[in-house]
Design a protein around this nucleic acid. Structure first.
Lengths: 215, 215
DNA sequence: TGCGTAGGCCAACAAGTGTTGACTTGGTCG
DNA sequence: CGACCAAGTCAACACTTGTTGGCCTACGCA
């Protein structure tokens, strides 16, 4: 679990005010790393784990704090609220590859493999999916990821702009469906599937959703 | 904790004991309909709606009781606990058709259409999916439906018993993925899809997952 | 007519939640 | 050294949750 330099919080939206005024304190430099960075990272790591395994409601701040071996009030001090913590813990970037410089018949396979690897590697994605299924706010966040990350990539492959949303949505049904059955519902044969099997079965599906002529 | 029975609504599952002894009361006949059946039905209807829209944790017994215009304690009296209420409210039967007497090249289309219609018609399915994504107990229930309802149907189509679980799981990824994006996450282009479009796009996918030679 | 009992409501309980504020510690710099 | 301030702990608040037991009401059989 990396936590060293990921300065992705920087929200300043839900700051508790006490440290908002005297911004830097000792080091007025812009990249001052605070002494509490270790704790902040521990909180984020624990939060990701809890959100992924328990969902938003059942993942209590007290449990997260216990995992991080600090007091629950520290979570509030650093992240303002439970929602703020979730926003900081789950900052999803799918790192989708550039498909323009790729043989058209490879997009399905590349996309499938990329998604599978992303989901296996970091549990934020499972956390996000769980929360998205549980609450309206989570669903909105998932919609945002679809719009800002999957749609543009689909646009690279599909010539007709009119069809882009439909084709991207179809891909989302298959990819999110895989993540749902495998990592959230844990349906046994879906869990047992080997990576190569998934690629072999799903790549043609995505390929068709992206490039086949509209039926 | 685990309720073994999953009968539709023949109650008598989680009885509070007070009325368990004197079973029938007025009418000793087997089909005695109590005076409270209207209330019981109202509770179930309200519960389905709340579970579907809010998920298990956020759907409070108080809110359900308010919708049904009765006291929260009545819910406890009739269904024992929140889990008991959920078990009674969400008794899913997919009513999957018999695929043996069907041209093999039609199974994909028939299955897709059937799933879509089921999901459009009753909101229990969305409720179950929401809860399954949120809690362990809900996931177990979804696994049970997969095992008891989807697996047997797949067995009708697939000759090799070894491949049945894999192929059924693949179908589940696509079908549940559609339900997830369309009814739970409500990703706009997935919601906008017309029934005929879904059928045209997804039927070949299911057809391949069920009948194509293993890659 | 009287009475048992099912149907229903009310008020309360214990547990757990997010959140807050006052207090203590320990390192840093004038 | 002594003041300062971030880092952290402790105890409590206000609130919601599922759940419980007591009480009232009205129907239906004797």
């Amino acid at each position: 679990m990396h936590d060293s330099d990921s300065d992705s919080d920087s929200d300043s939206s839900t700051e508790p005010g006490t440290e908002a005024g005297t911004a830097a304190g000792t080091e007025p430099g812009h990249a001052a790393q605070r002494r509490s960075d270790a704790t902040r990272g521990a909180i984020l790591a624990a939060a990701r784990e809890r959100f992924a395994s328990d969902g938003y409601d059942r993942a209590t701040i007290r449990a997260i704090a216990r995992d991080a071996k600090i007091d629950p009030s520290m979570v509030m001090r650093y992240y303002g609220s439970k929602e703020g913590l979730f926003a900081a813990a789950v900052a999803v970037d799918l790192e989708l590859p550039d498909l323009t410089s790729l043989p058209r018949h490879d997009v399905g396979r590349v996309l499938t493999r990329h998604f599978l690897r992303m989901w296996e590697e970091n549990e934020e994605l499972t956390a996000l999916l769980r929360v998205a299924a549980a609450s309206r706010a989570g669903a909105d966040r998932m919609q945002g990821i679809f719009r800002d990350q999957l749609l543009p990539v689909t646009r690279q492959v599909c010539p007709d702009p009119e069809q882009v949303p439909t084709r991207a949505a179809l891909c989302a049904t298959q990819l999110l469906g895989l993540a749902l059955t495998r990592y959230v519902l844990r349906i046994p044969p879906a869990v047992a599937l080997h990576g190569t099997e998934i690629e072999a079965w799903l790549a043609p599906t995505l390929q068709r959703y992206l490039t086949a002529p509209s039926p």
